[in-house]
Design a protein around this nucleic acid. Structure first.
Length: 592
RNA sequence: GGUCGCGUAGCUCAGCUGGAUAGAGCAUCUGCCUUCUAAGCAGACGGUCGAAGGUUCGAAUCCUUCCGCGAUCACCA
């Protein structure tokens, strides 16, 4: 039973006793810092049911609470706000109850329903860039948050390993590659393939320019450039299962996967199952045919199949071409169904995809609902804004991208130079230092991206490096390291339970209140698919701790009971920081 | 043009489902390292919450209109 539930009952009881009125609900909020109190009852909404002066009503209820509720030590009323002061003992009891709780804040019991979280899903013709980083961090973090909230989670990605874009890289490699491999050149596989994707584009543009010079209209030239025709021919061969093309495709995709694996490992993200578009691109057509018979879809004169969504405020959408081949939507319908077939416990999916596809997913979800799948009610498009540069959009073909691997390296380097300036790492081996720079650099990057609302677009300026001070990952990591330093120096941390008759320092009480919020924050973050809530919660906790740390002596405290409590409190704050950051995929260091 | 999203301090962002005097960080300026890590703490400066109406005891938050920015509206993926 939470304190708030308890108080709700008591307030209702009080109003019944005092005014013979049954309140439907009671509104609470944390007390503002400028007033004395821990929790506040808002009296205004009661005026609908109880006639009178809010100050008087508040005062009466306050008096009742002080008399009838053990945890309430005193009350005061300001305007229509009844501020309630809670006994220190209540918080100390709470602390003793959760102190030994491992993974405090996480829900351990797993529900039977699983949710599949899709994220990353790159094309295999170019390396990952900053946009993918945002996608990966968001998807991974939401998956972890859902797990912590008690859901069973499958992490997945669909790899776009098929189509004309792959053929472009393959063709350019054949033409200009001279047998170059990741081994021969030392280039990471995805970067090597990406290099040929760019090479294709360059050759293609040159051909267009030549044709235009020779008098061909630009539009025509774009369609007739010989290198493009060759790529299209290659795609046809691939679809026909041509041995040579398929084996080249396998070889180059292998290079890309190796490269991606390295980047994923560096980023600290992982997947439970993978889907390849080359396996799934034919899915969905049967479903469409079936849906056509059931009247969900309709056929136009030319044979193409559509769905009419005008009643839902959308328009008509094609689901099968006139020649019977699939469109993107067909595939997505088929893939969604396939996933549930593969994992029958799925009752919900999260798609981490940029907001330019908002409309697509709205339509997809609606179609799946109309097809009658029960799990279709539990689909969520985790939509996020683009990451733009000051120069505008990132474009792989034009080379205006912030490469994921470069950026990670960059962050590590910054962490290194700051650490060296501060020079606190005596006794660390080179290997340990390297590990630490990585932890801090990635912490800065991940926190920077995850702390903002996914819907907002991010303007990333590579010239101004990501901050390491203030509301940042390293700030929080630093606080964690500070706590570990205290714990190393303290002996017998767990010597005994905390003495509940202690008088709490204001800062201690604030910390306990903040710790108490962690479990509900995890739930809220899960409900809203929002890592930002976790990030902001952690920041508040850490700010509170640093303030406490500055004002109150922990190891220097002479009263044994107080010292015992403060050490344990510090430890618990450290644990919560670690738990919260785990949900963001950020590591915490022992020293820094 | 239709639809969706965003607009809060010079900059980057919080602000839950309406509540008290709108909060942080960066930047600028002041203090605090002989005491547990100064990547820290304490403080100053900085706001007509895009604009105008409306709903109500109360609006940054809800509704309407308008303005600005972005995305989207392909037998592309």
């Amino acid at each position: 039973m939470s304190l708030q539930n308890d108080l709700t009952q008591k307030v209702i009881e009080a109003v019944k006793q005092l005014y013979q009125v049954e309140l439907p609900a009671v509104e609470f909020q944390p007390t503002r810092k400028d007033f004395e109190g821990d929790i506040t009852v808002v009296v205004f909404p009661m005026l609908r049911h109880v006639k009178g002066n809010p100050v008087q009503i508040g005062t009466k209820i306050g008096e009742y609470l002080v008399e009838h509720v053990d945890e309430v030590s005193k009350c005061n009323v300001v305007q229509g706000f009844l501020n309630i002061v809670i006994e220190d003992g209540y918080y100390l009891n709470f602390f003793n109850n959760i102190f030994d709780q491992e993974d405090f804040g996480y829900v351990k019991t797993q529900s039977d329903d699983a949710v599949m979280v899709e994220y990353s899903s790159p094309n295999t013709n170019k390396p990952l860039h900053l946009g993918h980083i945002r996608n990966n961090l968001l998807g991974y973090s939401v998956a972890e948050i859902l797990k912590a909230s008690g859901k069973k989670v499958y992490k997945t990605q669909i790899i776009n390993d098929r189509g004309i874009h792959i053929c472009k890289s393959m063709l350019a490699w054949q033409k200009f590659g001279e047998g170059e491999t990741p081994e021969s050149s030392g280039l990471k596989g995805d970067h090597l393939v990406g290099k040929y994707y760019v090479a294709f584009d360059k050759a293609y543009k040159e051909q267009i320019a030549e044709l235009v010079d020779a008098g061909t209209p630009k539009e025509k030239a774009e369609k007739e450039a010989s290198i493009l025709l060759e790529a299209q021919e290659m795609l046809r061969k691939w679809e026909a299962g041509d041995d040579e093309v398929v084996s080249l495709w396998k070889k180059m995709n292998g290079w890309v996967y190796d490269g991606f694996d390295t980047t994923y490992k560096n980023l600290g993200v992982d997947f439970d199952t993978l889907y390849y578009e080359s396996d799934t691109y034919l899915l969905g057509r049967d479903v469409v045919k079936d849906g056509l018979e059931r009247g969900v879809f309709f056929k136009k004169e030319d044979g193409s199949v559509w769905i009419d969504l005008t009643e839902d405020g959308l328009d008509e959408k094609i689901v099968l071409r006139s020649d019977g081949t699939a469109v993107y939507m067909t595939q997505d319908i088929g893939t969604a169904i396939q996933r549930v077939t593969d994992h029958p416990d799925i009752n919900g999916m999260v798609y981490t995809v940029g907001n330019e596809q908002d409309y697509h997913f709205k339509v997809l979800f609606l179609i799946l609902k109309k097809l009658g799948y029960s799990w279709a009610e539990q689909l969520y498009h985790l939509s996020y804004g683009m990451v733009d540069l000051p120069s505008g959009k990132m474009k792989s073909r034009e080379g205006t991208v912030v490469d994921a691997d470069d950026l990670i390296k960059n962050m590590e380097d910054t962490a290194e130079s700051i650490s060296q300036e501060l020079g606190k790492l005596d006794g660390y081996s080179e290997e340990e230092k390297k590990q630490l720079y990585r932890t801090i650099g990635l912490g800065a990057l991940k926190y920077y991206i995850l702390k903002v609302d996914p819907k907002k677009r991010i303007l990333f300026n590579p010239e101004e490096s990501v901050d390491f001070q203030g509301n940042t990952g390293p700030f929080i990591q630093y606080t964690y390291a500070r706590i570990q330093s205290i714990l190393r120096k303290a002996d017998n941390v767990r010597s005994s339970a905390v003495e509940t008759s202690l008088d709490l320092h204001e800062k201690e009480k604030e910390l306990l209140k903040q710790i108490q919020l962690f479990p509900e924050t995890v739930q809220l973050a899960a409900e809203n698919f929002s890592p930002a809530l976790i990030a902001n919660y952690t920041y508040d906790l850490v700010k509170e701790f640093n303030s406490f740390y500055q004002q109150v002596s922990i190891l220097g405290e002479t009263d044994g009971h107080k010292k015992n409590f403060r050490v344990q409190l510090s430890q618990k704050v450290g644990e919560v920081i670690q738990s919260a950051f785990r949900l963001l995929g950020i590591d915490v260091p022992e020293r820094m």
